[in-house]
Design a protein around this nucleic acid. Sequence first.
DNA 1: GTCTATATTTCGATAGAC
DNA 2: GTCTATCGAAATATAGAC
Lengths: 192, 192
Amino acid sequence: MAKPPGSTKERILDVALRLFNERGYDKTSLREIAGELGITKAALYYYFETKRQILLELHLRLHALGEGILEEVGRLDSEREALAAWPRLVDELIDEVLANRELFILHQRNQNAFREIVDDPRHRAANEDVEERFRRVLQNPAIPLADRVRMACAMGGVLTALMGANALFGDDVPADEVARHVRAAVHDLVRR
Amino acid sequence: MAKPPGSTKERILDVALRLFNERGYDKTSLREIAGELGITKAALYYYFETKRQILLELHLRLHALGEGILEEVGRLDSEREALAAWPRLVDELIDEVLANRELFILHQRNQNAFREIVDDPRHRAANEDVEERFRRVLQNPAIPLADRVRMACAMGGVLTALMGANALFGDDVPADEVARHVRAAVHDLVRR
DNA sequence: GTCTATATTTCGATAGAC
DNA sequence: GTCTATCGAAATATAGAC
């Protein structure tokens, strides 16, 4: 499952991630990706069947990233458990966004593109349980709607403030300082 | 500036908005837009010079929407003024998102597409002062970073929870109830 | 594994009749 | 103001040599 980190396939994915974020998935051609790697477009087809597969593999990277946190989310059945766990889960989300900013930005900026891969069997297998787990919390009637809304707001706030940190607050603000404030802010949201 | 609400041009914009949200800007062809209106692709070019112009006009709709709120933001120079005004400004944002959900979703889901129009002179004229006004608040060193981060988190939370309300909390939750909880939640963020 | 060359499709945009 | 017909560009994807 974990590919050697210098392999051509991984280098393709790294370049694709960067270009998808710079120009958007639809406006990035395979020719451009290949060009940055010093190979030709045709060579990409040795590693990926279609352009979508490249996007899919990047999506699976995000999945792999969140497996630990999601497994925990899935076990939060009762109101008491969920409310107690959320501050810690939000902290983990913050850490992961900081460590994998590009990957999160890809998903934020290419939401329409990702709708193409939802039918792919590889995506379905990896995603069905994820959605199920999230539903167990955010659509759980045992938890008051007010608290579920606060959880969603916290997640949205974390993503907005961290992914757009430089654009929002200026290029000179230290990322760790922003992160510290985000942590404090959203903790006020999820802890009663 | 305000076009008759039943005119062909407005109907084109309405259909385009819907299709851009359903399939994404890049994957929506002019042929599809025309087809939904019962006209041909060539007829669209009587109203718009390019496909981008359609996206631009939709962007200007959002601008027109936020003029009132933005004018107020621009006047918030001091820390005291800004902190005092934010709860009310967040409330106005909530109202506008509720009243114009499709328009906000367009911008959330097609961030890459909008980067094509930043160079358009019509966009620059409308946008430069907007960014300037936001910078006056979110990049104002007179306001503690902690508070600016809270403001950004509040905005992100509002957008996430309201635009994704059905997907997040289920199709059966009443929108106004979600809005009420969002209001309460983000008020905890921006008021100290 | 990587190349050259090409097939195929689709799209944005234009010309000109009505 | 809307149409038919078409152009030209660019993209994904494939075939087959090396």
